[in-house]
Design a protein around this nucleic acid. Structure first.
Length: 565
RNA sequence: CGGGAUGUAGCACAGUUUGGUAGUGCGCUUGGUUCGGGACCAAGAGGUCGCAGGUUCAAAUCCUGUCAUUCCGACCA
């Protein structure tokens, strides 16, 4: 591309509109432009990056013999009713009606349609396995879009779906996809971790997330430094590391705790550490109200509660409900005498003579023991903390923040059951098809790369995803020799299929250097005063030094730089 | 969905308290001087001040409503 007469712009100042480094750099470099909240235009340079990322993924998909298809975005609502997911998605689905008032939605993910597509082919076990994928726009009405391309409402997803005769087959297909994902992210040079995660609305047997490491990541990853165990905090099991002490049980006693509602207020008032307290949190789990008990210095993991009840929705009860149930203001709830189910975190089974709310304003019970109230379930419902012990090896764990760039699911037969996707086995018996589903967000990869690779000058694209590998900067376009040399280099590199941008604008050198730095082109060839010696200068975006090289040798040098990546 | 903030030129913002000719910087156009890391001088172009009502002789400014953006929280594959 020649810049002189093309659609190219950069913005010198940060945009108020963008709340992240990547969002700002991508917008300032003219790669993306926000159209409305969580909806973006991809401009020529940005589209190049997105295409390069997509092409890496496509190549890795094709290597596994997966076949590319394209599904519609506009889908009859009944398709999601059939799988039972319409409710689960709720208002995060964009929905609309056609002229005959028939309800449609814009697809947020495509398990259902791929099950329909698969049913076109599947009759017998001989028709399996296979794998279909697509790059296609997804629509999710996020409550809070943010961080540039990271949390958006319309985005392209590469989604793949595997179909197998049984669990063993699924495991093989899954591993192929898993390996292809690793290969793809490695080729992009992303710095990422793979963690086990909750299956969420997708359902199924297993979910593993590919998480690009970044401080602005919205997911917290739990990583064991000793054994390498890694999972999303939402499913991190807590090791039962508490030691039971054989304290003598003291008699249950009601004490006055005026205006002390939070654990720290009561702890201060009674002058006791927070770990002598038990917090009682009133939750609404689907249509049920339950009390969840957790040690005073710990927090509850709501995903664990959701799984415990196999529920679709878990939220803290509103204050009116809490007051109705406990007959006291929020802050004085306790398990003693409570007539809703009580869920006890297993850590509390080691505690004695602890302190809880008394279900009475300005009062707590001290010297509470397990025998003093009824318990309906004991389970691990604790949110793991940094420094806790690893569930696998007992080592110490630490947290990382991650941007979810990919996710792989072993779905099992959930969708086959719902969508009636069956095959005839060797014994002429109808069997359910085993499915896997696999997603990558190329836009998120782009944003994650922008977060991971930048400096105060702008973006620094890895060679494989850069919009152009080389830029040729002509210092003075009014100098005929410089102009002709620059154009000749541009033509030569193009002939060699090396993507190249020619900065032949009539601008000052500083403007061109700064623009090329901002958009992050890996290799810069400067055509300027070194021409006197028949030389050009080559500078890498991520390095300081400049190499002068003869016009006779520069091609080989550039080729080597590219192939070394 | 709850709480806060902001909408004025392509971008970033001032002006709003106390109503009275629409401003600044960057960017853009033209001319000149510059010319290897975001030049300088001069002259210009560009805005029905988010939108709709209302108060007033007069509204960017006051009032009501509405839409959008954004921050914190809730929620989130």
């Amino acid at each position: 591309m020649k810049l002189g007469n093309s659609y190219f712009y950069t913005i010198r100042e940060n945009l108020k509109d963008e709340d992240s480094v990547s969002g700002n750099l991508l917008a300032r470099s003219g790669m993306i432009k926000k159209s409305s909240s969580g909806v973006y235009m991809y401009m020529p340079l940005g589209l190049k990056v997105l295409q390069n990322i997509s092409e890496i993924i496509r190549e890795e998909m094709n290597k596994t013999n997966a076949q590319e298809v394209l599904m519609p975005s506009l889908i009859p609502e009944e398709v999601y009713e059939a799988s039972g997911r319409r409710q689960g998605f709720g208002s995060s689905m964009f929905s609309l009606k056609d002229r005959f008032n028939k309800p449609f939605v814009l697809g947020p993910t495509h398990e259902e349609l791929f099950a329909v597509a698969a049913s076109m082919k599947i009759r017998s076990y001989k028709d399996l396995p296979f794998n279909l994928y697509q790059f296609q726009n997804k629509f999710r009405d996020e409550p809070r879009p943010r961080f540039g391309l990271i949390r958006v409402r319309e985005f392209i997803m590469k989604d793949a779906y595997s179909f197998d005769i049984d669990e063993n087959g699924l495991n093989v297909s899954y591993q192929k996809m898993f390996d292809a994902y690793k290969a793809s992210f490695d080729r992009m040079k992303l710095n990422y971790s793979i963690v086990k995660a909750d299956t969420g609305i997708m359902g199924g047997l297993l979910s593993e997330e590919f998480q690009a490491l970044s401080p602005i990541g919205e997911d917290t990853l739990v990583i064991c430094d000793d054994c390498g165990y890694a999972c999303n905090i939402e499913i991190a099991e807590c090791k039962d590391d508490s030691i039971t002490t054989f304290d003598k049980h003291l008699p249950l006693t009601l004490v006055k705790t005026p205006n002390a509602k939070t654990i720290s207020e009561v702890a201060n008032f009674l002058n006791l550490p927070a770990n002598k307290f038990v917090k009682t949190m009133i939750y609404r789990v689907d249509d049920m109200v339950v009390a969840c008990l957790i040690r005073g210095d710990k927090d509850i993991n709501e995903v664990k509660i959701q799984k415990l009840f196999n529920a679709t929705k878990v939220e803290l009860a509103d204050s009116a409900t809490v007051e109705l149930i406990t007959k006291a203001s929020v802050g004085f709830a306790g398990p003693v005498g409570l007539d809703i189910p009580v869920i006890l975190d297993k850590q509390i089974t080691h505690m004695h003579n602890f302190i809880v709310g008394a279900n009475k304003n300005d009062h707590h019970y001290i010297n509470v023991n397990l025998a003093d109230f009824s318990i309906s379930k004991i389970a691990d419902i604790r949110l793991i903390q940094e420094g806790d012990q690893c569930i696998k090896c007992g080592g110490s764990i630490h947290f990382e923040k991650g941007i979810e760039i990919g996710n792989t699911f072993k779905l099992g037969t959930k969708y086959a059951k719902a969508m009636d996707l069956m095959y005839l086995d060797q014994n002429n018996q109808l069997q359910e098809v085993w499915m896997g589903s696999y997603g990558i967000g190329p836009g998120r990869c782009m944003a994650a790369l922008a977060e991971q690779f930048n400096d105060d000058k702008g973006l620094i694209w890895p060679m494989n995803v850069a919009p152009y590998k080389v830029c040729v900067v002509i210092i003075n376009v009014k100098d005929h020799q410089q102009l002709e040399t620059g154009e000749r280099i541009y033509d030569e590199l193009n002939k060699l299929n090396i993507s190249v941008i020619l900065d032949d604008r009539d601008e000052r050198a500083g403007v061109k250097f700064n623009d090329m730095d901002l958009i992050g082109i890996p290799i810069r060839i400067t055509v300027g005063k070194a021409l006197i010696n028949n030389e050009v200068e080559i500078k890498l975006r991520d390095q300081k030094d400049i190499v002068k090289i003869s016009l006779d040798d520069y091609v080989g040098y550039v080729q080597e730089l590219i192939s070394n990546e």
